[in-house]
């Protein structure tokens, strides 16, 4: 596993980003900095713009103004695949896999670009040892080896969420963004998923959106609180717990 990228610039830096749909400002003056190797959680009430923030950083939608930097390089305005090739990978809140393809194929597709095979039409995909080994390794990591030949669309919900994580980390990206990875899971499944995330993102930068506060406070090094498209506080779990603005805007309403 590759370690964190060395260097002083933060893994992700969002500066004065704004996103408007027509006259409606969804994201207002968003500033966010995630250090190399940090586990950073974004929390906030429903509709605060957490998924939109993910979409802005990963290139799924383009900011109206402001800039996003990955390891110091400007990435706002780039296509999602260009951002992905620079080492940022994300998962989706609603399971987003290749439904008709097998579990094995799902993970293998996510391995192909990073192993340098790109659009090759002159190589047999079954005889690429490094692709095969990496795919098998990831299936092993997400505990889906016994389901390798099952079409992804036929997996159980929890299995699909695990596959979603597997696809996200398969490229070996150094910055991993997970959008509500444990949503809809039972307690036991959540515990399993959290230990999986902890293990697979070892030495990487992790940005996670999560509603389950025990997951957030157990996993994150730092937390940012997003309310109405604006980050009202950013800090360690202790600082966030004590912050009066957060208590009022978020924890005060929902956690108490």
């Amino acid at each position: 596993m590759s370690g964190a990228v060395s260097g002083k610039s933060p893994a992700i830096e969002v500066h004065a980003v704004e996103k408007r749909f027509g006259n409606v400002g969804i994201i207002r003056d968003l500033n966010l900095s995630v250090a190399q190797g940090e586990r950073h959680a974004i929390i906030g009430p429903n509709g605060a713009g957490k998924s939109t923030t993910f979409n802005l950083i990963s290139g799924h939608i383009k900011p109206t103004s402001g800039e996003v930097r990955l390891n110091g390089d400007l990435i706002s305005g780039l296509q999602p695949f260009e951002i992905n090739r620079r080492g940022l990978s994300r998962s989706f809140q609603v399971t987003n896999v290749f439904a008709r393809m097998s579990v094995w194929e799902n993970v293998r597709c996510a391995v192909l670009w990073a192993t340098g095979h790109r659009y090759a039409f002159w190589k047999n995909v079954d005889s690429l040892p490094e692709v095969r080994e990496r795919t098998a390794q990831i299936l092993d990591d997400i505990h889906l080896t016994h389901r390798r030949d099952v079409p992804a669309g036929l997996l159980t919900y929890a299995e699909q969420r695990e596959l979603e994580i597997g696809i996200t980390i398969a490229s070996g990206a150094t910055v991993v963004m997970l959008d509500e990875p444990t949503a809809g899971m039972s307690h036991a499944e959540t515990d399993r998923a959290v230990s999986l995330i902890r293990r697979l993102t070892e030495g990487k930068t992790l940005v996670i959106v999560e509603h389950d506060m025990s997951v957030v406070f157990g996993l994150a090094d730092r937390i940012s609180v997003l309310v109405y498209g604006h980050i009202i506080a950013s800090g360690t779990p202790e600082e966030i717990r004590r912050d009066p603005k957060v208590k009022e805007a978020y924890l005060g309403e929902e956690a108490h």
Binding site: R90, N96, A99, C109, L112, A114
Partner: peptide
């Protein structure tokens, strides 16, 4: 293989490079 992935889910393909 990637053609199949594009058939199944062109959006996600963009996020695997």
């Amino acid at each position: 293989r990637i053609s199949n992935a594009v058939r199944d889910n062109p959006e996600r393909v963009q996020f695997i490079g």
